[in-house]
Design a protein around this nucleic acid. Structure first.
Lengths: 211, 211
DNA sequence: CCTACCGATCGGTAGG
DNA sequence: CCTACCGATCGGTAGG
Protein backbone atom coordinates (compact mmCIF):
# COMPACT_ATOMS: atom_id res chain seq x y z
CA UNK A 1 0.00 0.00 0.00
CA UNK A 2 1.43 3.31 -0.99
CA UNK A 3 -0.06 4.88 2.08
CA UNK A 4 2.04 2.65 4.34
CA UNK A 5 5.36 3.77 2.95
CA UNK A 6 7.32 5.44 5.73
CA UNK A 7 5.06 4.01 8.44
CA UNK A 8 7.85 1.76 9.70
CA UNK A 9 7.00 -0.40 12.70
CA UNK A 10 3.24 -0.06 12.30
CA UNK A 11 1.39 -3.37 12.45
CA UNK A 12 0.04 -4.46 9.09
CA UNK A 13 -3.61 -3.43 8.89
CA UNK A 14 -3.47 -1.66 12.23
CA UNK A 15 -4.63 1.95 12.30
CA UNK A 16 -2.25 4.42 13.91
CA UNK A 17 -3.90 5.61 17.13
CA UNK A 18 -5.12 9.21 17.49
CA UNK A 19 -5.54 11.84 14.81
CA UNK A 20 -3.90 10.82 11.53
CA UNK A 21 -0.65 12.68 10.84
CA UNK A 22 -1.10 15.45 8.27
CA UNK A 23 0.04 14.42 4.85
CA UNK A 24 1.33 16.78 2.22
CA UNK A 25 2.04 20.48 2.62
CA UNK A 26 1.32 22.25 5.88
CA UNK A 27 -1.60 24.58 6.32
CA UNK A 28 0.79 27.55 6.54
CA UNK A 29 2.44 26.56 3.30
CA UNK A 30 -0.89 26.19 1.51
CA UNK A 31 -2.16 29.50 2.80
CA UNK A 32 1.03 31.31 1.83
CA UNK A 33 0.95 29.80 -1.64
CA UNK A 34 -2.64 30.95 -2.10
CA UNK A 35 -1.56 34.43 -1.08
CA UNK A 36 1.25 34.37 -3.64
CA UNK A 37 -1.14 33.28 -6.39
CA UNK A 38 -3.53 36.07 -5.43
CA UNK A 39 -0.83 38.73 -5.57
CA UNK A 40 0.54 37.33 -8.83
CA UNK A 41 -2.91 37.61 -10.39
CA UNK A 42 -3.06 41.24 -9.32
CA UNK A 43 0.42 41.99 -10.69
CA UNK A 44 -0.19 40.16 -13.97
CA UNK A 45 -3.48 41.94 -14.40
CA UNK A 46 -1.87 45.34 -13.95
CA UNK A 47 1.34 44.84 -15.90
CA UNK A 48 0.70 41.77 -18.01
CA UNK A 49 2.31 38.38 -17.54
CA UNK A 50 5.55 39.06 -19.39
CA UNK A 51 6.14 42.58 -18.10
CA UNK A 52 5.07 41.76 -14.55
CA UNK A 53 8.23 40.48 -12.86
CA UNK A 54 8.70 38.08 -10.02
CA UNK A 55 10.38 40.97 -8.22
CA UNK A 56 7.07 42.83 -8.46
CA UNK A 57 5.21 39.89 -6.98
CA UNK A 58 7.78 39.29 -4.24
CA UNK A 59 8.11 42.90 -3.16
CA UNK A 60 4.34 43.24 -2.77
CA UNK A 61 4.57 40.33 -0.32
CA UNK A 62 7.65 41.73 1.43
CA UNK A 63 9.67 38.82 0.12
CA UNK A 64 12.76 38.43 -2.04
CA UNK A 65 12.29 37.01 -5.47
CA UNK A 66 14.32 33.89 -4.69
CA UNK A 67 11.94 33.05 -1.87
CA UNK A 68 9.11 32.54 -4.32
CA UNK A 69 10.97 29.49 -5.58
CA UNK A 70 10.31 27.80 -2.27
CA UNK A 71 6.64 27.76 -3.27
CA UNK A 72 6.75 27.65 -7.04
CA UNK A 73 8.96 25.92 -9.59
CA UNK A 74 8.86 28.67 -12.18
CA UNK A 75 7.06 31.78 -13.33
CA UNK A 76 5.18 29.60 -15.80
CA UNK A 77 3.88 27.44 -12.96
CA UNK A 78 2.68 30.54 -11.15
CA UNK A 79 0.63 31.47 -14.19
CA UNK A 80 -0.73 27.94 -14.32
CA UNK A 81 -1.81 28.15 -10.69
CA UNK A 82 -3.80 31.27 -11.52
CA UNK A 83 -5.49 29.48 -14.40
CA UNK A 84 -6.17 26.38 -12.36
CA UNK A 85 -7.74 28.29 -9.51
CA UNK A 86 -9.91 30.28 -11.90
CA UNK A 87 -11.33 27.45 -13.97
CA UNK A 88 -11.61 25.02 -11.06
CA UNK A 89 -13.61 27.38 -8.91
CA UNK A 90 -15.72 28.34 -11.91
CA UNK A 91 -16.58 24.69 -12.50
CA UNK A 92 -17.35 24.20 -8.83
CA UNK A 93 -19.59 27.20 -8.50
CA UNK A 94 -21.57 26.46 -11.64
CA UNK A 95 -22.83 23.20 -10.14
CA UNK A 96 -25.68 24.90 -8.34
CA UNK A 97 -27.19 26.05 -11.65
CA UNK A 98 -27.43 22.45 -12.85
CA UNK A 99 -30.10 21.51 -10.35
CA UNK A 100 -32.53 23.93 -11.95
CA UNK A 101 -34.96 22.01 -14.13
CA UNK A 102 -36.84 24.71 -15.99
CA UNK A 103 -34.92 25.45 -19.23
CA UNK A 104 -35.56 29.17 -19.11
CA UNK A 105 -34.64 29.51 -15.46
CA UNK A 106 -31.55 27.39 -15.86
CA UNK A 107 -30.23 29.46 -18.74
CA UNK A 108 -31.02 32.67 -16.86
CA UNK A 109 -29.13 31.35 -13.83
CA UNK A 110 -26.11 30.46 -15.97
CA UNK A 111 -26.06 33.95 -17.45
CA UNK A 112 -26.28 35.62 -14.07
CA UNK A 113 -23.65 33.28 -12.69
CA UNK A 114 -21.07 34.18 -15.33
CA UNK A 115 -21.62 37.93 -15.01
CA UNK A 116 -21.42 37.99 -11.24
CA UNK A 117 -18.47 35.62 -11.05
CA UNK A 118 -16.33 37.50 -13.59
CA UNK A 119 -17.17 40.89 -12.06
CA UNK A 120 -16.30 39.67 -8.58
CA UNK A 121 -12.81 38.38 -9.45
CA UNK A 122 -11.44 40.85 -11.96
CA UNK A 123 -7.77 40.01 -11.47
CA UNK A 124 -8.15 36.29 -11.97
CA UNK A 125 -10.46 36.59 -14.95
CA UNK A 126 -8.51 39.35 -16.66
CA UNK A 127 -5.41 37.17 -16.50
CA UNK A 128 -7.40 34.10 -17.48
CA UNK A 129 -8.87 35.74 -20.56
CA UNK A 130 -6.07 38.03 -21.73
CA UNK A 131 -3.06 35.89 -20.90
CA UNK A 132 -4.50 32.60 -22.11
CA UNK A 133 -1.99 32.29 -24.99
CA UNK A 134 0.91 32.79 -22.57
CA UNK A 135 0.17 29.58 -20.68
CA UNK A 136 3.01 27.12 -21.27
CA UNK A 137 2.32 24.13 -23.48
CA UNK A 138 2.76 21.57 -20.71
CA UNK A 139 -0.12 23.08 -18.76
CA UNK A 140 -2.37 23.71 -21.71
CA UNK A 141 -4.23 20.43 -22.13
CA UNK A 142 -5.41 20.28 -18.53
CA UNK A 143 -6.84 23.78 -18.61
CA UNK A 144 -8.26 23.27 -22.08
CA UNK A 145 -10.14 20.16 -20.96
CA UNK A 146 -11.78 22.09 -18.12
CA UNK A 147 -12.63 24.98 -20.40
CA UNK A 148 -14.35 22.58 -22.76
CA UNK A 149 -16.26 21.07 -19.87
CA UNK A 150 -17.36 24.54 -18.87
CA UNK A 151 -18.42 25.42 -22.40
CA UNK A 152 -20.40 22.18 -22.65
CA UNK A 153 -22.59 23.22 -19.73
CA UNK A 154 -23.64 26.31 -21.66
CA UNK A 155 -24.06 24.39 -24.90
CA UNK A 156 -26.41 21.90 -23.27
CA UNK A 157 -28.42 24.66 -21.64
CA UNK A 158 -28.75 26.39 -25.02
CA UNK A 159 -29.77 23.18 -26.77
CA UNK A 160 -32.45 22.53 -24.17
CA UNK A 161 -33.66 26.12 -24.41
CA UNK A 162 -33.93 25.81 -28.18
CA UNK A 163 -35.84 22.52 -27.88
CA UNK A 164 -38.31 24.19 -25.55
CA UNK A 165 -38.83 27.28 -27.65
CA UNK A 166 -37.07 29.55 -25.18
CA UNK A 167 -34.49 30.48 -27.82
CA UNK A 168 -34.71 30.70 -31.58
CA UNK A 169 -33.18 27.69 -33.37
CA UNK A 170 -29.39 27.93 -33.58
CA UNK A 171 -26.26 25.85 -33.23
CA UNK A 172 -25.59 25.21 -29.55
CA UNK A 173 -21.94 26.16 -30.04
CA UNK A 174 -22.87 29.59 -31.38
CA UNK A 175 -25.50 30.21 -28.75
CA UNK A 176 -23.13 29.25 -25.95
CA UNK A 177 -20.27 31.40 -27.26
CA UNK A 178 -22.62 34.32 -27.76
CA UNK A 179 -23.78 34.08 -24.16
CA UNK A 180 -20.29 33.56 -22.78
CA UNK A 181 -19.03 36.52 -24.79
CA UNK A 182 -21.83 38.82 -23.77
CA UNK A 183 -21.35 38.01 -20.08
CA UNK A 184 -17.57 37.56 -19.80
CA UNK A 185 -16.80 40.74 -21.73
CA UNK A 186 -17.71 42.65 -18.57
CA UNK A 187 -14.12 42.28 -17.37
CA UNK A 188 -13.10 44.78 -20.04
CA UNK A 189 -15.52 47.60 -19.25
CA UNK A 190 -16.95 47.12 -15.75
CA UNK A 191 -16.54 50.19 -13.55
CA UNK A 192 -17.52 49.50 -9.94
CA UNK A 193 -18.40 53.16 -9.39
CA UNK A 194 -20.82 53.17 -12.27
CA UNK A 195 -22.02 49.67 -13.01
CA UNK A 196 -24.01 47.04 -11.20
CA UNK A 197 -23.35 43.41 -12.15
CA UNK A 198 -26.85 42.31 -11.13
CA UNK A 199 -28.46 44.98 -13.27
CA UNK A 200 -26.26 44.06 -16.20
CA UNK A 201 -27.08 40.38 -15.73
CA UNK A 202 -30.77 41.24 -15.82
CA UNK A 203 -30.24 43.18 -19.03
CA UNK A 204 -28.55 40.16 -20.60
CA UNK A 205 -31.38 37.87 -19.57
CA UNK A 206 -33.99 40.30 -20.88
CA UNK A 207 -32.10 40.74 -24.10
CA UNK A 208 -32.09 37.11 -25.11
CA UNK A 209 -35.25 35.94 -23.38
CA UNK A 210 -37.55 38.93 -23.57
CA UNK A 211 -41.05 38.12 -22.41
CA UNK B 1 0.86 80.12 -44.54
CA UNK B 2 2.46 76.98 -43.34
CA UNK B 3 1.96 75.38 -46.73
CA UNK B 4 4.17 78.02 -48.35
CA UNK B 5 7.22 77.32 -46.23
CA UNK B 6 9.98 76.07 -48.48
CA UNK B 7 8.24 77.31 -51.64
CA UNK B 8 10.85 80.05 -52.14
CA UNK B 9 10.47 82.15 -55.31
CA UNK B 10 6.83 81.24 -55.89
CA UNK B 11 4.60 84.22 -56.56
CA UNK B 12 2.22 84.94 -53.71
CA UNK B 13 -1.11 83.33 -54.51
CA UNK B 14 0.23 81.76 -57.71
CA UNK B 15 -0.22 78.01 -58.08
CA UNK B 16 2.88 76.02 -58.99
CA UNK B 17 2.43 74.73 -62.53
CA UNK B 18 2.02 71.00 -63.19
CA UNK B 19 1.33 68.22 -60.72
CA UNK B 20 1.90 69.40 -57.13
CA UNK B 21 5.06 68.06 -55.60
CA UNK B 22 4.37 65.16 -53.22
CA UNK B 23 4.35 66.26 -49.62
CA UNK B 24 5.19 64.05 -46.69
CA UNK B 25 6.42 60.50 -46.83
CA UNK B 26 6.85 58.72 -50.15
CA UNK B 27 4.49 56.04 -51.34
CA UNK B 28 7.20 53.41 -50.85
CA UNK B 29 7.77 54.53 -47.29
CA UNK B 30 4.05 54.46 -46.51
CA UNK B 31 3.61 51.00 -48.03
CA UNK B 32 6.61 49.61 -46.19
CA UNK B 33 5.39 51.04 -42.90
CA UNK B 34 1.99 49.44 -43.43
CA UNK B 35 3.74 46.14 -44.05
CA UNK B 36 5.71 46.51 -40.83
CA UNK B 37 2.54 47.25 -38.86
CA UNK B 38 0.87 44.19 -40.38
CA UNK B 39 3.75 41.88 -39.46
CA UNK B 40 3.98 43.38 -35.99
CA UNK B 41 0.29 42.64 -35.42
CA UNK B 42 0.91 39.05 -36.43
CA UNK B 43 3.94 38.71 -34.14
CA UNK B 44 2.24 40.39 -31.19
CA UNK B 45 -0.80 38.21 -31.65
CA UNK B 46 1.29 35.04 -31.58
CA UNK B 47 3.77 35.92 -28.83
CA UNK B 48 2.16 38.84 -27.02
CA UNK B 49 3.40 42.41 -27.08
CA UNK B 50 6.06 42.13 -24.40
CA UNK B 51 7.42 38.74 -25.43
CA UNK B 52 7.28 39.48 -29.13
CA UNK B 53 10.58 41.17 -29.91
CA UNK B 54 11.52 43.67 -32.56
CA UNK B 55 13.99 41.05 -33.78
CA UNK B 56 11.01 38.77 -34.43
CA UNK B 57 9.26 41.48 -36.42
CA UNK B 58 12.38 42.45 -38.35
CA UNK B 59 13.46 38.94 -39.25
CA UNK B 60 10.02 38.13 -40.65
CA UNK B 61 10.54 41.09 -42.98
CA UNK B 62 14.13 40.10 -43.79
CA UNK B 63 15.33 43.23 -42.03
CA UNK B 64 17.63 43.99 -39.12
CA UNK B 65 16.06 45.27 -35.97
CA UNK B 66 17.81 48.63 -36.21
CA UNK B 67 16.20 49.22 -39.60
CA UNK B 68 12.77 49.32 -38.03
CA UNK B 69 13.80 52.55 -36.36
CA UNK B 70 13.88 54.21 -39.76
CA UNK B 71 10.10 53.75 -39.78
CA UNK B 72 9.15 53.82 -36.16
CA UNK B 73 10.31 55.78 -33.14
CA UNK B 74 9.87 52.98 -30.62
CA UNK B 75 8.23 49.64 -29.96
CA UNK B 76 5.49 51.52 -28.13
CA UNK B 77 4.76 53.54 -31.26
CA UNK B 78 4.51 50.35 -33.28
CA UNK B 79 1.83 49.11 -30.91
CA UNK B 80 0.07 52.44 -31.22
CA UNK B 81 0.05 52.15 -35.00
CA UNK B 82 -1.68 48.79 -34.70
CA UNK B 83 -4.31 50.29 -32.43
CA UNK B 84 -4.78 53.31 -34.62
CA UNK B 85 -5.25 51.30 -37.78
CA UNK B 86 -7.71 48.98 -36.03
CA UNK B 87 -10.00 51.57 -34.49
CA UNK B 88 -9.79 54.00 -37.40
CA UNK B 89 -10.80 51.45 -39.99
CA UNK B 90 -13.52 50.16 -37.67
CA UNK B 91 -14.96 53.66 -37.40
CA UNK B 92 -14.74 54.12 -41.14
CA UNK B 93 -16.40 50.87 -42.04
CA UNK B 94 -19.24 51.28 -39.57
CA UNK B 95 -20.45 54.38 -41.40
CA UNK B 96 -22.47 52.37 -43.90
CA UNK B 97 -24.67 50.98 -41.11
CA UNK B 98 -25.67 54.49 -40.08
CA UNK B 99 -27.63 55.14 -43.24
CA UNK B 100 -30.10 52.39 -42.34
CA UNK B 101 -33.25 53.96 -40.95
CA UNK B 102 -35.23 51.00 -39.62
CA UNK B 103 -34.20 50.44 -35.98
CA UNK B 104 -34.31 46.65 -36.18
CA UNK B 105 -32.36 46.52 -39.44
CA UNK B 106 -29.80 49.02 -38.25
CA UNK B 107 -29.08 47.07 -35.08
CA UNK B 108 -28.89 43.83 -37.05
CA UNK B 109 -26.43 45.42 -39.47
CA UNK B 110 -24.25 46.64 -36.60
CA UNK B 111 -24.18 43.16 -35.10
CA UNK B 112 -23.23 41.54 -38.37
CA UNK B 113 -20.65 44.22 -39.01
CA UNK B 114 -18.80 43.61 -35.75
CA UNK B 115 -18.77 39.83 -36.15
CA UNK B 116 -17.52 39.86 -39.71
CA UNK B 117 -14.96 42.58 -39.13
CA UNK B 118 -13.38 40.95 -36.06
CA UNK B 119 -13.32 37.53 -37.69
CA UNK B 120 -11.68 38.89 -40.82
CA UNK B 121 -8.79 40.62 -39.04
CA UNK B 122 -7.86 38.29 -36.20
CA UNK B 123 -4.32 39.61 -35.69
CA UNK B 124 -5.29 43.25 -35.38
CA UNK B 125 -8.28 42.59 -33.15
CA UNK B 126 -6.54 40.08 -30.91
CA UNK B 127 -3.82 42.64 -30.25
CA UNK B 128 -6.39 45.41 -29.92
CA UNK B 129 -8.42 43.56 -27.33
CA UNK B 130 -5.79 41.63 -25.40
CA UNK B 131 -2.96 44.14 -25.40
CA UNK B 132 -5.10 47.20 -24.69
CA UNK B 133 -3.54 47.75 -21.24
CA UNK B 134 -0.03 47.70 -22.75
CA UNK B 135 -0.65 50.80 -24.83
CA UNK B 136 1.58 53.60 -23.52
CA UNK B 137 -0.06 56.44 -21.64
CA UNK B 138 0.79 59.07 -24.23
CA UNK B 139 -1.22 57.25 -26.88
CA UNK B 140 -4.10 56.27 -24.64
CA UNK B 141 -6.39 59.29 -24.81
CA UNK B 142 -6.54 59.37 -28.60
CA UNK B 143 -7.48 55.70 -28.85
CA UNK B 144 -9.86 55.95 -25.92
CA UNK B 145 -11.74 58.82 -27.57
CA UNK B 146 -12.27 56.77 -30.71
CA UNK B 147 -13.34 53.73 -28.70
CA UNK B 148 -15.95 55.86 -26.96
CA UNK B 149 -17.16 57.16 -30.28
CA UNK B 150 -17.49 53.60 -31.50
CA UNK B 151 -19.36 52.52 -28.38
CA UNK B 152 -21.72 55.48 -28.74
CA UNK B 153 -22.86 54.21 -32.14
CA UNK B 154 -24.02 50.99 -30.51
CA UNK B 155 -25.55 52.78 -27.55
CA UNK B 156 -27.64 54.97 -29.80
CA UNK B 157 -28.78 52.01 -31.87
CA UNK B 158 -29.79 50.19 -28.68
CA UNK B 159 -31.65 53.21 -27.33
CA UNK B 160 -33.57 53.56 -30.58
CA UNK B 161 -34.34 49.84 -30.63
CA UNK B 162 -35.68 50.05 -27.07
CA UNK B 163 -37.83 53.07 -27.94
CA UNK B 164 -39.32 51.14 -30.85
CA UNK B 165 -40.01 47.97 -28.92
CA UNK B 166 -37.34 45.98 -30.77
CA UNK B 167 -35.50 45.34 -27.50
CA UNK B 168 -36.73 45.03 -23.93
CA UNK B 169 -36.15 48.18 -21.86
CA UNK B 170 -32.57 48.42 -20.60
CA UNK B 171 -29.74 50.91 -20.10
CA UNK B 172 -28.18 51.68 -23.47
CA UNK B 173 -24.71 51.19 -21.99
CA UNK B 174 -25.53 47.65 -20.91
CA UNK B 175 -27.23 46.73 -24.14
CA UNK B 176 -24.32 48.05 -26.20
CA UNK B 177 -21.69 46.28 -24.11
CA UNK B 178 -23.69 43.05 -24.22
CA UNK B 179 -23.83 43.20 -28.01
CA UNK B 180 -20.18 44.19 -28.40
CA UNK B 181 -19.17 41.38 -26.06
CA UNK B 182 -21.26 38.73 -27.77
CA UNK B 183 -19.89 39.69 -31.18
CA UNK B 184 -16.27 40.63 -30.42
CA UNK B 185 -15.67 37.52 -28.30
CA UNK B 186 -15.42 35.59 -31.56
CA UNK B 187 -11.71 36.44 -31.71
CA UNK B 188 -11.16 34.03 -28.82
CA UNK B 189 -12.89 30.94 -30.21
CA UNK B 190 -13.35 31.31 -33.96
CA UNK B 191 -11.97 28.34 -35.90
CA UNK B 192 -11.97 28.98 -39.66
CA UNK B 193 -12.20 25.24 -40.37
CA UNK B 194 -15.30 24.89 -38.27
CA UNK B 195 -17.10 28.16 -37.95
CA UNK B 196 -18.82 30.56 -40.29
CA UNK B 197 -18.92 34.22 -39.28
CA UNK B 198 -22.11 34.89 -41.23
CA UNK B 199 -23.90 32.00 -39.56
CA UNK B 200 -22.72 33.15 -36.16
CA UNK B 201 -23.84 36.69 -36.91
CA UNK B 202 -27.28 35.38 -37.82
CA UNK B 203 -27.42 33.45 -34.55
CA UNK B 204 -26.63 36.62 -32.64
CA UNK B 205 -29.31 38.58 -34.46
CA UNK B 206 -31.85 35.81 -33.87
CA UNK B 207 -30.89 35.54 -30.23
CA UNK B 208 -31.62 39.12 -29.33
CA UNK B 209 -34.31 39.93 -31.90
CA UNK B 210 -36.19 36.67 -32.31
CA UNK B 211 -39.30 37.08 -34.37
C1' DC C 1 18.77 50.23 -44.37
C1' DC C 2 23.17 47.78 -41.95
C1' DT C 3 27.05 46.46 -38.30
C1' DA C 4 28.34 46.78 -33.84
C1' DC C 5 27.32 47.60 -29.38
C1' DC C 6 25.52 49.28 -24.71
C1' DG C 7 22.73 49.28 -20.40
C1' DA C 8 19.11 47.42 -18.03
C1' DT C 9 16.03 43.90 -16.76
C1' DC C 10 14.80 39.43 -15.52
C1' DG C 11 14.14 34.38 -14.67
C1' DG C 12 16.53 31.29 -12.34
C1' DT C 13 20.38 29.01 -9.28
C1' DA C 14 24.02 28.27 -5.54
C1' DG C 15 24.50 27.92 -1.04
C1' DG C 16 23.15 28.81 3.15
C1' DC D 1 13.22 32.32 3.46
C1' DC D 2 17.75 35.33 2.27
C1' DT D 3 22.28 37.19 -0.18
C1' DA D 4 24.80 37.12 -4.13
C1' DC D 5 25.16 36.26 -8.67
C1' DC D 6 24.93 34.44 -13.62
C1' DG D 7 23.44 34.12 -18.51
C1' DA D 8 20.39 35.56 -21.82
C1' DT D 9 17.38 38.71 -23.97
C1' DC D 10 15.98 43.00 -25.54
C1' DG D 11 14.94 47.95 -26.67
C1' DG D 12 17.45 51.34 -28.31
C1' DT D 13 21.69 54.16 -30.22
C1' DA D 14 26.10 55.42 -32.82
C1' DG D 15 27.74 55.91 -37.02
C1' DG D 16 27.70 54.97 -41.36
Amino acid sequence: MGAMIGAAGAQVGARRPGRPRNRGPSAEYTARLAEIVEVAAKVFRERGYDAGSLDDVASELNLRKASLYYYVRSKAELLYLIFDKTITSALDSIEKCLSIQDPRERLAALIRHQVVMVASEPSFFTVFFDQRPRLARNYDSEILAKEKQYLRVYQEAVATAVDNGVLAPMRARYGAQAILGMTSWIYKWFDPDRDDPQAFADACVDMIMAG
